[in-house]
Design a protein around this nucleic acid. Structure first.
Lengths: 142, 142
DNA sequence: GATACAAGCTACAGCAGATAGAGGTTCAAG
DNA sequence: CTTGAACCTCTATCTGCTGTAGCTTGTATC
C-alpha cells in the first residue's frame, strides 16, 4: 500500500495535484486508512504515470480522460486513440506555426531598435501600429 | 465620443474584455454619460489597439503594462522596451523548441499505430510507458 | 507507552486572461 | 413615445493546477 507522498515522488507530481486529479474524477477514489489517509496500489501509480506522461505531451485533461477510458477497455478499436493523438499533433503543429510567425515579428522589432530614446523606439512603434507588421497574427490564444 | 461597442468593433476586442482591462488598470477609467455608460476618446482606442496588438504578439498583461508605461514617458531610454521584447522573443523560441520535441514524439506515436485493437495500440502503449519515448520532455507548462 | 515530527487531511483562495449569463437600465432612431 | 439594440453591474466559469491555514495521523525512536 502506497501513501500519496510515494506516488508523488515516484511520478514527480505534487501531492495536491494528485488529490486534484481525484477530485475531478481522473484518478479513482483512493482507499483510506482508519485515520482517513489515502492508500494506493501499483495500478494507481501506473494510472498517474499515464496521466502525467500524457500531460507532458500536451494532452488536455479531457483528452486524457478519453484515452484512459480507451485504455481501460482493451476490446475497442484503436482508431479513437489514434484520432485523439492526431488531433493533438495537429494542434501542436498549429501552435508551432503561429509561434514562428510571432518569432519573426519579434525578431524584426528587436533588430530595428537601436537603443535610442523611447520617442523613436521601433519596438513601441510597431506595437502602436499594426500596419507595420509584415505577418498576419490575428488569433490570440492559439 | 466613442461607445464601448465602437472600440470593441474597431479593435476586435470583446466588450467584456475592455471592461476587464479597465478593471485591472490596463485601460484608464473611462468617462461616463449621465446614464453611466462609458465614453472614449481616440487615444483610448489607440491604447486598446496597442494592448491588443501586444497580446497578439504574445506579451503578458504585465509586460504590456510596462510597455505602456514606457510609451507614456517618451523621454526615457528605449533599452527597457527593447529588453522586454527580447525576453518575449526568448520565451517564444523556448516554446517553439519544446513544441517541436512534442511534435516529434506525437508523430512517432501516430505513425506506429496501425489501427488495430486497443490492446496493442501503440499510442496508448507509449503513454503508459515513458521509457518508450525517444525525446526528453520533462516540463509540463512551458 | 510516551513523544516528536514528518506527512497527511480538508477547505478555500488565487494565478492568467478572459468569457458568459442573469437581470436590469439607457440611448438613439423612427 | 415606443422599441430594441446596446449598455450596465455582478457573479460564475474555464484550464490546470498551486499555495496556505489550521488541524490530524502515522511511524520511528526512546
Amino acid at each position: 500500500m502506497l501513501a500519496i507522498g510515494t506516488l508523488s515522488r515516484r511520478t514527480g507530481t505534487k501531492v495536491q495535484t494528485i488529490r486534484y486529479y481525484e477530485q475531478i474524477g481522473l484518478m479513482n477514489e483512493a482507499g483510506r486508512t482508519a485515520g482517513g489517509q489515502r492508500r494506493y496500489f501499483e495500478k494507481d501509480l501506473d494510472r498517474l504515470a499515464f496521466i502525467r506522461h500524457s500531460r507532458q505531451l500536451g494532452f488536455s485533461l479531457d483528452s486524457i480522460r478519453e484515452l484512459l477510458d480507451l485504455s481501460d477497455n482493451p476490446s475497442q478499436s484503436c482508431a479513437e486513440a489514434d484520432s485523439i493523438a492526431r488531433r493533438q499533433l495537429h494542434q501542436v503543429e498549429q501552435r508551432i506555426k503561429r509561434l514562428q510567425a510571432l518569432k519573426k515579428e519579434l525578431k524584426r522589432m528587436v533588430a530595428e531598435c537601436d537603443g535610442d530614446s523611447v520617442a523613436e523606439c521601433k519596438v513601441l512603434e510597431v506595437l502602436r501600429d499594426h500596419a507595420e507588421c509584415l505577418t498576419e497574427h490575428d488569433e490570440i490564444g492559439a
